[in-house]
Amino acid sequence: MAAAIHINQLCKTYGKLQALRSVDLDIQQGEFFGLLGPNGAGKTTLISTLAGLTRADSGSASILGFDVQRDYREARRQLGVVPQELVFDPFFTVRELLRIQSGYFGIRRNDDWIDEVLANLDLTDKADTNMRKLSGGMKRRVLVAQALVHRPPVIVLDEPTAGVDVELRQTLWRFVRDLNQQGHTVVLTTHYLEEAENLCGRIAMLKQGRIVALDTTSNLLSQFSRQTLKLRLRDGAQLPPALAARGQMTPSGAFSIALNDLDEVESVLHVLHEAGARVEDMELAKPDLEEVFVSVMHEAG
């Protein structure tokens, strides 16, 4: 079975700037994949190369086995891209636009599917509205719809929720999740790490054109981020000497203690008890992707 996306030693420079430095990446069919990284990391450049909007200097990429340069027509049929920029064609209504976009992909009489997509994106009542009359959030939905007119097996969304209200985010993720469950491969870039954590099975982190972390979301979480015990002691007491080295005081006067595994909770409480310190409040903080992200980006230098 061909990989949904296969990227081999892809390099791209803009003048002196190396936007992609020999990126290797395979994404399997049916995955929900997250592509994370700070601004300027090269996420959009990578996506543009897959979509044929940019030509790489060297290396290759293919979609479901079709090389994005050599078999560009077949590759593009497999791919639906929601671009980062909020672009639109002011001459047309939503439905006209979606019909035209279907035609570009060689699909005629696509109205059943168009209606379904519109309904799923809560756009049905805007179908005959001109693009320039739509709000930003609505335009974003149309961009998603345009990317889906040809039912692409591989869907790439480049920061689809940047500056978008909660309602649209929820609508969008419900729809994209359904598509993923029906077998579509989904690749997502986002700055909302919570979103990525909830949605993505696997994640790649990009920094300055390089992949600096690539693993399943759960592995990344357990590998990079330990659980922490947050506690507050009665009467403003300090941590006993046995724990002082491991604990950090937060600005509010509470302490956080990093744990290697959950069994350590017991021993920490035991030490506190022995020392006569009494716990006023206690909370176990789960690892989150944000910590992973920060530490990966930090380690990658």
Binding site: A51, G52, P83, F88, Q101
Partner: peptide, 17 residues
């Protein structure tokens, strides 16, 4: 116009030769 507004991508993404 399409280049400046960015909507040129709608004709660059499809499999048009």
């Amino acid at each position: 116009q399409s280049k400046v507004t960015g909507n040129i991508i709608f004709v660059l993404l499809p499999p048009l030769s």
